[in-house]
């Protein structure tokens, strides 16, 4: 059991702690998983860059001792494209919230997936805009309450993973903060994938989403993740009716294909011949 020991070597613990997030927010759990995955893969901290957007998830980059870039709302993937394409030896991790990635950053998301640029995009999905006070997000399930959907959300929500697969991401998976151990493994696989990897993580927001929708405290919301999730394998044998209110977790798509930075080497080769 060495899990607790290594994490601190990756944190800017002398500078920026305690974390800005509310009590029981799952973002810290995901950060822990990312760190353990990076540690497990033995990556050099100097060659890891973390790019984040705006919102609760955006603050993730502040706390971790990599080359960190906290960018503008929704643009994390575009900035990360510059970082990665400019210096391909960097392992690039992109941390975004659900609104950040799927609403304002939706265009960057589908195009990063289409290019299959080698980076790992994390979507911290708490079903709501937490930092700004609980507005409805593209992943708020129908019928749920948000500060801008006081009478219940009537818009259908995105399935980020299906979107990513359709747009061309070469590795797509979903995990939950409750299953942090399997999340470590999923993240390690995602980072190892040479191409655009998407890891959507369901994370509880007890302070805002939980309070609006009377879902209970952090512990209850974590337990709910356990009850509401089924694995990809289990889901395969279930009917659509049974799957209706379930969150499916696991690796959905793992199909490596040519990666942008490597392909550009071919462009350079061709250009030099002409």
């Amino acid at each position: 059991m060495q899990k607790s020991i290594d994490v601190y070597a990756y944190l800017r613990h002398e500078k920026k702690f305690p974390l800005i997030w509310c009590a029981g927010c799952g973002n810290g759990i995901i950060l822990g998983s990312i760190i353990r995955a990076v540690d497990g893969l033995g990556l050099d901290k100097n060659l890891v860059s973390m790019v984040s957007g705006i919102g609760c998830s955006g603050r993730t980059s502040t706390y971790v001792d990599f080359n960190t870039l906290h960018t503008t709302h929704g643009r994390a993937l575009a900035f990360a494209t510059g970082v990665k394409f400019g210096r391909p030896e960097l392992t690039t991790l992109v941390v975004m919230g659900d609104g950040d990635c799927l609403s304002i950053g939706g265009n960057h998301f589908i195009h990063a997936a289409r290019r299959n640029i080698d980076m790992t995009a994390f979507i911290f999905n708490n079903n709501i805009y937490g930092m700004t006070g609980g507005q409805v997000s593209p992943t708020t399930p129908e019928g749920m309450i948000a500060s801008t959907a006081s009478y219940g959300n009537r818009e259908p929500n995105f399935d980020a993973c299906k979107l990513a697969v359709a747009a061309g991401a070469s590795f797509v998976a979903r995990g939950t903060t409750y299953e942090a151990d399997s999340l470590d493994e999923i993240i390690a696989l995602a980072i190892q994938n040479k191409g655009f990897s998407v890891v959507e993580v369901m994370t509880p927001c007890p302070t805002i989403y939980g309070r609006y929708n009377r879902l209970g405290n952090a512990v209850k919301m974590l337990r709910m993740q356990l009850e509401d999730t089924v694995t990809v394998e289990e889901a395969a044998g279930m009917s659509p009716e049974e799957l209706k209110d379930k969150v499916v977790t696991g690796v959905f798509h793992d199909a490596p294909r040519p990666e942008l930075c490597e392909e550009y080497e071919l462009v350079i080769e061709t250009a030099l011949k002409k």
Binding site: T72, R75, T81, G82, V83, F85, G86, H108, H111
Partner: peptide, 18 residues
């Protein structure tokens, strides 16, 4: 890039990457 927002973001990212 996919749009000018992305163009500007990506050149800033690349600039920070050296």
């Amino acid at each position: 890039m996919e749009d000018e927002i992305g163009s500007m973001a990506c050149i800033v990212g690349a600039s920070i990457a050296g």
